[in-house]
Write a protein that binds this DNA or RNA. Sequence first.
DNA 1: CGACTAATATTTACGCTGTAAACTTTCGGG
DNA 2: CCCGAAAGTTTACAGCGTAAATATTAGTCG
Lengths: 216, 216
Amino acid sequence: MHPTKRRRSRRRYHHGDLANALVAAAVDIVQSQGAGALGLRAVARKVGVSHMAPYNHFDDRAALVAAVGAHGFRKLAREIRESAEQVAGRPARQLQEAGITYVRFAVANPQLFRLMFSPELADKRAHPDLATAAQQTFGVLEDLVEQSAGTDARAQQGAMGPLVAWSLVHGLAVLLLDQQLGPPVDLQVAEQIARGATEAIWVGLAATTRERKSQP
Amino acid sequence: MHPTKRRRSRRRYHHGDLANALVAAAVDIVQSQGAGALGLRAVARKVGVSHMAPYNHFDDRAALVAAVGAHGFRKLAREIRESAEQVAGRPARQLQEAGITYVRFAVANPQLFRLMFSPELADKRAHPDLATAAQQTFGVLEDLVEQSAGTDARAQQGAMGPLVAWSLVHGLAVLLLDQQLGPPVDLQVAEQIARGATEAIWVGLAATTRERKSQP
DNA sequence: CGACTAATATTTACGCTGTAAACTTTCGGG
DNA sequence: CCCGAAAGTTTACAGCGTAAATATTAGTCG
């Protein structure tokens, strides 16, 4: 018998793995109905448990939201890493693929992505799990930029490299989600735009290392 | 006698200019206590009016939040325009100043800035006022990029120009606010970073027009 | 194996919120 | 001056987060 899922019987007093079930339900709610519909009672209802049960696993509503955010950051970091591994050995391509994956993630999971950068999660000090998840996601980009800088003279911009890389894809993602670039965009179009933008930025970084003194 | 402010007497049944007073109070609350504390009752209390009075001027809570967001976008657009006017005649400098002003606005009004890009305001279709305010803000950047392209061969990237420009400063602002770049940053440091980043991007755009075929 | 303890889940209750409905007060145009 | 419309108030209700007390189960030690 599986140790985590004891018995098939319904209506057990103890759920067995409520914490995970709760964040799963929470992620579901966010994806389908947006962050506004995410609440302790809603999530408890969805799992089929009393409205106070979640308090055994989360201090308060903010902790639940933070858990969903952390889940999102981990997922994003994983997808970026995987996309980079698919073009291993070519650091420049890796960086571009990472950027495209970032934008694709935002377009594919708009509600979750928005929650991850919502004001509710702005102060990450109270939620260490969320803080490290967010930092590690950013860290993946940093590593890729660093590796690029190692094999290529481009992108050796010091702290400016990862900053510009992250800023570009994040800003692009937000623009796409808020439909500031026009009507809703599907995955493939978003990828094309991201490809173009990352290429532009890449050439830009390359040039910057060459003509440093040129000023506007 | 001033037509908008009739009599100095306190405790009048009709407020006279409640709509504006409400958004002013709402902006105050957002700035000091964050978007989470913004509610119809809170705002009514602050103005000294019954908790149902706001419904004569806003359909619901979402409409109030949208009004605050629109206020923020208009303020941002105004500040960008003003900073650009101070270096009129030098389109390249104008674009850079606009970017710096954008970042400075975010650092100076963090809570308001976050609300402007909060999930609550993601769908602007239901709030035309907010939609046009946001579009016009983005439009200011578009115009500046276009003017730069007119006098300078740089930045002639088609749709990519404003996209990259906006993405960069927005992403940078978010990174600064979320303290992903380290401990809290004051206005002057933020300006320095923004200056460096915009210079990098400028050189990048310039180079891109030259070596278009270069690929990562 | 049985009993004690800590972890987990439930019930009840309270104050807060958004908002609907009915009411009162005031403003402005014939 | 009057009367309708606009603006503000009062009352009421459901849903939310959460505190406190209670009930059920799981794991551990004798």
